[in-house]
């Protein structure tokens, strides 16, 4: 069965703009915000959200944006082959006392976010941690929810949701496909 496109380029752009506005609204301004993307696609989305935050507020968010690799903190490391690691880049301000917005592409079991919370603990003590995702497809295995969601996408566990981003995939799209292995 062919993949069905559920979000196109313009839909993704609108969703990210809305998320940026919601982040600012909930945090009453840009001060003390740190945007951390989870590699690889969460990191790209974090950069896009940060660019929008910069446009909206007229401030430079590049220095408030970073990446958080969670590989070493995953609970399934010993069950799979060794996963490649990715760089963690924390803004010079650090995360102590900041409101950290974690950004990922898909929220599914919640295990990646659990690992991210552990990884953050090793780096400092944020005042608060929020979660922004482009797609929430349900099927949580842990008590974790997102604060900012681009699109709620009810899906069967057997379905495969793909996030395509221009930076690595040549185009922006979210597709869903029946029954492919995951």
């Amino acid at each position: 069965m062919p993949a069905r496109t559920v979000l196109q380029e313009a839909d993704i752009a609108r969703a990210l703009t809305r998320i940026a506005h919601e982040i600012l609204e909930a945090n009453r301004g840009p001060e003390s915000l740190v945007i951390l993307g989870i590699p690889t696609r969460g990191a790209l989305l974090a950069e896009r959200i940060a660019a929008r935050l910069g446009e909206i507020t007229g401030t430079d968010f590049a220095g408030r944006t970073g990446t958080l690799d969670v590989t070493m903190h995953r609970d399934d490391l010993a069950r799979t082959g060794t996963r490649p690691t990715h760089p963690t880049r924390i803004p010079a301000s650090g995360i102590d006392g900041q409101t950290v917005v974690l950004v990922d592409d898909v929220l599914y079991s919640g295990r990646t976010i659990r690992a991210a919370l552990d990884a953050l603990t090793d780096l400092g003590r944020p005042a608060a941690v929020r979660l922004a995702v482009l797609v929430d497809r349900g099927h949580r295995q842990l008590p974790i929810r997102a604060d900012y969601v681009g699109k709620n996408l009810p899906s069967a566990a057997s379905e495969h949701v793909s996030i395509l981003l221009a930076e690595v995939d040549g185009q922006d799209a979210v597709t869903i496909q029946e029954g492919s292995a995951r």
Binding site: M72, A78, R79, G81, T82, R83, T85
Partner: peptide
């Protein structure tokens, strides 16, 4: 050590 020991080591 990560590369050799973090994943399954029985393969």
């Amino acid at each position: 050590l990560y590369r050799l020991l973090a994943g399954r080591t029985d393969s």
